[in-house]
Design a protein around this nucleic acid. Structure first.
Length: 641
RNA sequence: GCCGGUUUAGCUCAGCUGGUAGAGCAGCGGUUUUGUAAACCGAAGGUCGGGGGUUCGAGUCCCUCAACCGGCGCCA
């Protein structure tokens, strides 16, 4: 058989030769340093015999591709360590994940955090043992019998569920064996010691909450200690951006026990909200939306009609009056919007109707899923429903994609990608219906200049949807914005319009949101900007800070002038040193500090200091008012003057 | 909802194997009038998350409830 090397050289070998032997033939140091091989694009173990020729490439330990294998192997080393330390623990699965790995174990007594250092220590020993990792092909029944005999019933179950005829491979390292597809590094030594066990968690067997709960141990692993340190630093930096921390420090909002999942917005946080809402309202007005407001609480019979009572009841806040009336806080705005659509007779000429609401909704989310502003029980959606004819879906979708991308950009978020969630396995509607619906969303995306990533099977059971995934300043992605087709609700609630030919027709509804909820989006913005909002969004835009009390009356006058220019201004006239004030307002992420000393007071000036720079520009009060009020315009208002 | 962890002053956190709570910052009072990231002095501030138990004695040990944090699940 013939092997072709990356440099184009071709050489003949006998079938059955291992990659390692091939490497040794080239240079002993290559064989020593190689971690994996790639044969015709497929990763393989170094010691696995080559049966066929092909393009071969040796991958060194520092190759990014190998990193995933290091993590996978680290999970195996961890499993070996755990089974040595805690006999009777069963193994299940342990894959590499982003930045690390985990392994799920079945054990009666739970692990405690104190166990992690012990496990880490044993892992280091296993790395030092330099155990050879070898691949073995087993007979299916023998493999099942083997795992059952040693009490590994989860492994046995995995093999049983593999399709007949699948090659069963076990990997052996030292005394320890695991069912695994591979590939793996040649020895535990190559895993290295740049790993750390990070957290414990419960996880359901096969991800199904009806199954047994296993114990998951998470770890992170890297090719070098430097990479591990860099990662840990990155995690630390991300923690500093935590919106809950910044929200407290900047006095934006708080939450308390009596209202879990409910937000108390403080004056500064609410200023941020109002600024965002005003911006959104202008954008929606300009995009041809009409805004409405629908009731917060509606009778049970209404939710029965909409179908929510049957399907969504566990998530609804239901209340009962003294008279025994049963009502629910709205969990969604859509049924309310259909009520407005349903009043009077609609004509095809009116369509599309783009009906928007900053709709406050309440959902009884499970306690374990609550998370700061990101997942709450009381929230306000930037919701809208587009009622349109079938033939308008594509154009409306395209308009929406363009609008959404513009707004995300204005708010400091780059679009990472748009996902087209297609038909799920269990669904309503014919294949022809799905073909058409998915096709419409796809072609609309392309017309808007976007090629969506297909999220196979992620659609709702009645129609496909588009999700907008944005990327923040530190590379994390968030789903913000969605467009969902709906033929069902108009039907249920009897929405219709009179068509050109006089017949009654059902409109299609497009559910759509750009931010998602204000709460969550503001949380994301806080983390994206790390609290340092651009001038137009900052709750406090300027602090006028005095150096001496002599300058106070001028400073008050200056603050008033800036306010009259539309800026959000605070005055700091305290008896403190300017260093102290600068530090405090800088930490509070105030974009502009206007320093006023004797000089400025005498000359009618301000010394402007911008957040993030230590220079100053001294300008006249009038010029400062002009300059800053211009800079503080929202993105949609710029360039009009 | 499930698993693990946390809960001490407004905030950030100490408090060893049980002996009766402490620091820094903020806030308050005073001194200082200051030129771009922390001036100085002083007084005050706590049902140690709630409830129950063990003990002569509990912030510390046990039980229980809650909230929060990290995951899992959920998010028609």
């Amino acid at each position: 058989m013939q092997l072709e090397f990356p440099d184009g050289a071709k050489r003949d070998y006998d079938p059955g030769v291992t990659s390692r032997a091939v490497a040794e033939g080239i240079s002993p140091s290559l064989a020593k340093r190689a971690a994996l091989v790639r044969l015709d694009g497929q990763l393989r173990d170094l010691d696995r015999p080559l049966e066929t020729g092909g393009r071969i490439e040796f991958l060194m330990r520092d190759d990014p591709v190998v990193l995933e294998t290091i993590r996978h192997d680290a999970s195996h080393v961890m499993a070996e360590a755990v089974q040595e330390l805690f006999p009777g623990t069963q193994v299940t699965i342990g894959p590499a994940i982003e930045d690390g790995f985990y392994y799920d174990f079945a054990r009666d007594t739970p692990f405690s955090l104190d166990d992690l250092p012990k496990i880490e220590q044993r892992m280091r020993e296993i790395v030092d043992r330099d155990e050879k990792i070898t691949r073995e092909v087993w007979d299916r029944d023998e493999a099942i019998a083997h795992f059952e005999a040693i009490g590994e019933r989860y492994k046995a179950e995995i093999i049983r569920d593999l399709p007949e005829g699948e090659t069963i491979t076990l990997y052996r390292q030292g005394e320890w064996k695991d069912l695994c597809l591979g590939p793996h590094l040649p020895s535990t030594k190559m895993v290295g010691k740049a790993f750390k066990l990070t957290k414990l968690a419960g996880a359901y067997w096969r991800g199904d909450h009806r199954n047994a709960q296993l114990q998951r141990i998470y770890g992170t692993a890297w090719a070098s200690q430097a990479d591990l340190d860099a990662y840990l630093l990155r995690v630390e930096e991300a923690e500093k951006r935590d919106h809950r921390k910044i929200g407290r420090a900047m006095d934006l909002f708080h939450m308390q026990e009596e209202g879990k999942g409910m937000v108390f917005w403080h004056p500064k946080g609410w200023t941020l909200w109002r600024t965002l809402e005003a911006y959104m309202r202008r954008r929606l007005d300009a995009a041809g939306y009409v805004e409405v407001k629908t009731p917060q609480v509606l009778d049970r019979s209404f939710w029965e009609k909409s179908g929510h009572w049957e399907k969504y009841r566990p998530n609804m806040f239901v209340c009962e009056t003294e008279e025994g009336e049963v009502l629910s806080l709205k969990p969604m705005n859509c049924p309310g919007h259909v009520q407005i659509f349903d009043v009077g007779q609609r004509s095809y000429r009116e369509l599309p109707i783009r009906m928007a609401e900053f709709g406050a909704c309440h959902r009884y989310e499970p306690s374990g899923s609550l998370h700061g502003l990101m997942r709450v029980r009381g929230f306000t959606q930037d919701d809208a429903h587009i009622f349109c004819r079938e033939d308008q879906i594509e154009a409306e979708t395209e308009r929406f994609i363009r609008l959404t991308r513009m707004i995300h950009k204005d708010l400091g978020m780059d679009t990472d990608h748009i996902a087209l969630a297609t038909r799920p396995p269990v669904r309503a509607g014919s294949d022809a219906f799905w073909d058409k619906a998915e096709g419409t969303l796809l072609s609309a995306s392309r017309k808007a200049g976007v090629e969506p990533v297909i999220a196979e099977g992620d659609g709702a059971f009645y129609a496909p949807k588009l999700d907008f995934i944005v990327k923040d300043a530190i590379g994390r992605t968030w789903t913000c914005g969605t467009l969902q087709l709906d033929y069902v609700l108009p039907e249920r609630l009897g929405a219709e319009y009179v068509a050109e030919d006089g017949s009654k027709q059902r409109p299609v509804m497009l559910h759509r949101a750009i931010l998602g909820s204000f709460e969550r989006f503001i949380g994301i913005m806080i983390e994206n900007y790390a609290g340092a909002f651009p001038l137009w969004l900052a709750p406090v835009q300027v602090v006028v800070a005095t150096i001496t009390s002599d300058a106070e009356s001028y400073a008050r006058e200056a603050a008033e002038r800036l306010r009259s220019a539309g800026l959000r201004v605070e005055g700091d006239y305290r008896n403190e040193k300017i260093n102290y004030k600068v530090r405090e307002h800088s930490l509070a992420k105030v974009p502009v500090i206007a320093v006023v000393g004797r000089k400025e007071a005498e000359n009618g000036q301000l010394a402007l200091r911008r957040l993030g720079s230590d220079g100053q520009e001294v300008v006249s009060l009038e010029a400062a008012a002009q300059l800053l009020s211009g800079e503080a315009l929202a993105p949609d208002l710029r360039g009009e003057a």
